[in-house]
Amino acid sequence: MTDASRHDSSADPSPRPQQPDVRRRRFLMACGVGAAGAAAAAPAVSGSAAIVAPTAIAPESKGYRESDHVRRYYATTRL
């Protein structure tokens, strides 16, 4: 728990796009990852990823799940 706390206090827990993030997103868009190029492909990609029923990994989160204590931790940080 202390580790998780330290980890999250070092970064803004808010996932909303931050001002310094604009450059990163512009770059992605310019490269075709985002609204310009990939957005058109994304729905089909997303659909295809959802269609599949992987044998090795469960469909819900395809391999990973949150551990309960951290889910609770996230809940407490969302004020």
């Binding site: 580790d3 090795a56 990994i57 469960a58 391999g63 990973y64 949150e66 204590h69």
Partner: peptide
């Protein structure tokens, strides 16, 4: 630390 773990049934 990220709150992510391998699902129990996963061999990978």
């Amino acid at each position: 630390e990220l709150g992510i773990a391998r699902r129990d049934e996963v061999a990978m």
